[in-house]
Amino acid sequence: MPEPVGDRPVLVRIGAVGVCGSDVLRFGVGKGYGFPLVLGHEMSGTVVEDSPSGAFTSGDRVAIFPCLPDAADPMTEIGEFTLGTHYDYFGSRRDGGLEEYLSVPERNLVRLPEGVSLVEGALVEPAGVALHAVRKATVPANATALVIGAGPIGLLAAQWLRVLGVVRVLVSDIDERKRRVAEHLGFDTIDPTGSTSDARVMEATGGRGVDIAVEASGLGITFLQAVHAAAHRGQVVLLGDLSTDVDLPKETVSRILRRELTLLGTWNARITPRGQSEWDMVVASIGRTVNVADLVSHVFELEQAQSVFEDLADRSVWANKTVFAVSDEAKAEADAALAASFSAKQVP
Rank of each mutant, 00 (worst) to 15 (best):
M1W: 09
P2Y: 01
P4Q: 01
R8G: 03
P9F: 00
V12T: 01
I14D: 03
G15E: 08
C20V: 05
C20L: 03
C20E: 11
G21Q: 10
D23K: 02
V24G: 01
R26F: 12
G28T: 09
G30L: 13
G32A: 15
Y33L: 04
G34E: 12
F35R: 14
V38T: 15
M43Y: 12
M43S: 08
G45H: 12
T46M: 10
T46K: 07
V47M: 07
V47F: 07
E49I: 13
E49G: 07
D50P: 07
P52C: 04
S53T: 15
S53K: 07
T57C: 08
G59N: 03
A63C: 11
I64P: 02
P66V: 05
P66I: 05
P69K: 02
A71L: 14
P74Y: 12
T76N: 11
E80G: 03
L83T: 07
L83S: 12
G84I: 06
Y87M: 09
R94H: 07
R94K: 13
D95R: 06
L102P: 01
E106I: 11
R107M: 10
V110R: 00
V116A: 06
S117T: 15
L118V: 11
V119L: 15
E120N: 13
G121C: 14
V129L: 05
A130F: 13
L131I: 14
V134I: 07
V134L: 02
R135H: 03
R135A: 04
K136N: 09
T138N: 06
A141P: 07
N142P: 05
N142Y: 09
A143P: 04
A143M: 05
A145K: 05
L146R: 03
G149A: 10
A158R: 04
R162V: 00
R162L: 00
L164T: 02
L170V: 05
L170Y: 12
D175C: 06
R177S: 00
R177G: 00
R179D: 04
H184L: 09
L185R: 01
D188F: 00
T189A: 08
I190D: 05
P192Q: 08
T193P: 05
G194D: 08
A199T: 15
V201W: 08
G207I: 13
A213C: 09
A216K: 05
G220D: 08
T222W: 02
T222F: 02
T222M: 02
L224K: 06
L224W: 06
L224R: 06
A226L: 04
A229S: 15
A230G: 10
A230D: 02
A230T: 09
H232S: 14
H232W: 06
G240L: 10
D245C: 01
D247L: 04
L248A: 14
L248M: 14
T252G: 06
T252M: 04
R255F: 15
L263K: 11
N268P: 11
G275A: 02
S285L: 07
R288K: 14
R288F: 08
T289K: 09
V290K: 02
V292D: 06
A293Q: 15
A293C: 09
A293W: 02
L295T: 10
V296S: 10
E301W: 03
L302F: 00
V308N: 07
D314M: 04
A319N: 10
V323H: 10
A330M: 10
A330D: 13
E333P: 03
E333N: 11
D335Q: 15
A336F: 01
A337K: 07
A337D: 07
S341Q: 07
F342D: 06
A344S: 15
A344R: 13
K345G: 10
